[in-house]
Structure formats: C-alpha cells, structure tokens
Design a binder for these strands. Structure first.
Lengths: 215, 215
DNA sequence: CGTCGGGTTGAATGCCCTCAATACCCGTGG
DNA sequence: CCACGGGTATTGAGGGCATTCAACCCGACG
C-alpha cells in the first residue's frame, strides 16, 4: 500500500506500479512540467531548489509522505527531487487524481485534509526555524523525525538518518560544523547517542525540551 | 468583491456580508472550533500562537488574502487572528464552501490552486527564513509586501506598514532593535526612506538584491 | 597501505542579542 | 498653543552564539 490512508479500490488502480530508484537519483528537475505526485513507499528523498548553483534543501520526505502539492498552482515542479537512499515510490497522476476528486467525496476530503495538514506543518516549521536557536532547531528536527516515523507505525528510539550532516545543516540553515558540535553536546548530555548515521534517543523528554516544542 | 478571483454568482451569496472591526480586535482565539474562512477586504490581520504567554506571529494577511486553510485538517483554528488596523472582512463558511466545491469544478479548482499556492509560499518563506541573514530577511519582507500589493493591483513604491516594528521583529525572528538598525542602514544606502510606518522604496532593484531573492 | 569524502574538533571573527539610555510621535489636558 | 505623558522607535556599548577557517580523524575502497 502506498497511500497513507485507506481509500477505495479505484484509487489503487490509479497508483502506478511501484518504481525503484537507487541512491542519488534525480526524479524531477526543478521547473519541469508537473505530471504526477510521488508517494514514498520506502527510502527517502529530498526536495531542493538551486540558486546560483547552490542547493537549498526544502524538505525531506519519508515513507507515507506525498511530494508535489505545491505544484498544483504553478503546474510545474517547484523543486528538484532526489533520492537520499535506495527508494521505492508510487506515482499518482495529477489528472487522474483530479477526476477521482470530482467523483468521490471521500477522496476529495482526504486530499483537502492532506493539503491542509501540509500547510499546518509548514506554519509550524516557519515558527520553529525563525524563532529557535541552533540547538533547538536540531533537537526539533530529530524529534520530528521520531514523531513522523511513529505516526507511520515505526515507533522506535533508533533512527537512521537517511541524509548527510551537510543536508541537515543546509536544511536547518546552519553549518555542518555547528550540527556536528551540537550532536556531540547532546551526546554528552545523554540525550542521544550518535554513531554516524545512526541515532539512538536516550531521553525523549529531554530531547523534546531541548526542542522547546511548547505546543 | 471579496474573493480574489472571479467566481460564479452562487459564491457571492455564500459570502456573508462584510463585517467591520476596529484595530486590535481578536477575531478568533487559537484552538476554537473552525467554522469559516476569513477573507480580508480591507485592512490587515495577523495570525499568531501563544506559547508560554509569548506571542509568536505566524503571518500577516492583506486585502485579498484568505485565512484558515490550515484549519481544514484539524477542524480547529490553529492560530489566533487579530486585526492590525481597522479591517473589513468577508466570512466564508466552511460547510457551504465544501458543498460548492462538490458541485462546481471551477470552485474546486480554485480552492486547490489557492491551497497549493499557500504551500508554495510557505516553502519559499522557510527557505527565506532558514537561510537568510537579518538584513536579507527584512529586505525580503519589505519586497514581499511590495509584490503582494502589486499582485492585487496596488502598484506603489510607498508602503504603509500596518504592523509595528515589534510585530515585524517577532515574525522574522529578530529583535526590534535589529529591525530598527537595518531600516536606518537601508536608508543610508538610499534603498528606502522610512518615516514611522510609512516606507518609500527608492531603489527597488537594490532592495531585491539585498533580499538575495535569487529565484 | 594510501587516498578520498564525510565528519569532528579547535581557535578567532563577526553578527545579532541584551541591556540601557535617549529620541520621537501623538493624543490629552492645561 | 504648549506642556506633559506613555507608548513606540532609535541609538549606543558590551557579550554570546554561530560562523569561518583550519587541522585532524575515520571508515570505505581501490
């Protein structure tokens, strides 16, 4: 199953067969014509824009996430999409989804809800990243990874980062050195234990407090 | 007319009559039940959450803007809404809009497009505020005000800020002193001229460059 | 065993914040 | 008309956090 919520059978027929990609594959180039949404089945992707040759990461998408809602307005992909690891996606054609939206109230409500949730998440992210200090940002980032996996049924204190330090720093608007330093500090505080891409949360409440997630 | 795009006649009947509010009126309290969208007809509002008694501003809405898309998912208002000046709004009931969405493809497409545009704007905002320095943030903020007014037909280099310095600082994640200092610096550079709440853009291109708006 | 890319650690600079004082705006009342 | 007061905005000095620049570490891989 690819879609986050259970739908009727017709949706499944709209979902193109799963496609498999190796690490560092560019699925979409920024600016190209919008045709379909990507639903992450396994693995992870990042979305980014390139400004003056510099990549600016917009978001990371994990299993269950849908990429592409921002493209409806412009009918173009506003970001490039690249796999971070080997990744399996389902693809959902925009035109076909819209037909289904027109005919099936349940699908329509689900899409509205997903888009609304997207907006809400972005709002929180903006608050997060405009108000927080570096340590709070990183704590919030890791805590968010934990909750995102949890919501999808993968409740585990052990997280494998699919993105590099450099990607994290870029996304959070920090430097790679700062990210590294904060990770070691959190380790000294016994909040996390870090081994390369593997993070183990040792004190979830402390992490939550570091993130200053008061809402 | 309240709605940004022209719709059919039935939409107009759904729009409740205009309502007028004085400055600093709370239209909505965070967490209350979601009933309707607010469309800004004239004036301005801010949306904000209150965390530990501290207000965190989420966005400013100007004439033509619609407030409330983030509430569909939760069926609650996720932000409080307060007028910044005397403001006239139209109110659009959620249930009624959804009925119209079901029956009228044009309305549905418009709502999808508006929500998608919202998502896109938030994405840009996140990039903006996670990557930019203080001066770039403020320049981007002012430039965005200019373009937002322009898109709505108010093309003018003279902008009246409806929000206080303190609101701007809060929104951008800066301090009021920093905002003030940067405004005077931009004045010294002959990019702007500032007199209280009135800003006059003297060099739009320079402002754009300061904002590092390379996309 | 050497190299290369990613990651960590260290010292110095700079940007923005904090704290504090002063200036400005504007409505009110003398 | 001017004086006054309160809130808002500006300006100045000092400190802290994140960046920059640089060196070093480490695991993967030929």
């Amino acid at each position: 199953m690819c879609i986050p919520m259970s739908l009727n059978n017709r949706t499944n027929t709209l979902l193109e067969r799963k496609k498999s990609f190796t690490k560092d594959t560019v699925l979409v180039d920024e600016g190209s014509a919008f045709k379909k949404f990507f639903i992450i089945h396994s693995g992870a992707v990042k979305t980014y824009v390139t400004v003056n040759g510099i990549e600016q990461i917009n978001g990371f998408y994990l299993p269950g996430d849908i990429v592409g809602f921002d493209s409806i307005a412009t009918q173009k992909y506003n970001n490039s999409i690249k796999t971070l690891t080997n990744t399996i996606t389902c693809e959902l054609k925009y035109d076909e989804l819209m037909e289904l939206v027109a005919s099936d109230a349940k699908v329509r409500d689900m899409i509205f809800k997903l888009m609304s949730q997207d907006i809400l998440n972005y709002q929180k992210l903006i608050l997060s990243y405009s108000q927080k200090k570096a340590e709070e940002k990183l704590a919030a980032f890791i805590y968010a990874l934990y909750t995102r996996y949890s919501e999808r049924g993968h409740v585990s204190l052990n997280i494998k980062l699919s993105m590099s330090r450099s990607d994290i720093a870029n996304y959070l608007g920090l430097t790679i050195e700062t990210v590294s330093r904060i990770l070691t500090r959190m380790q000294e505080l016994d909040v996390l234990s870090v081994r390369g891409k593997y993070i183990s949360i040792k004190n979830l409440l402390a992490l939550y407090k570091l993130a200053a997630e008061n809402n």
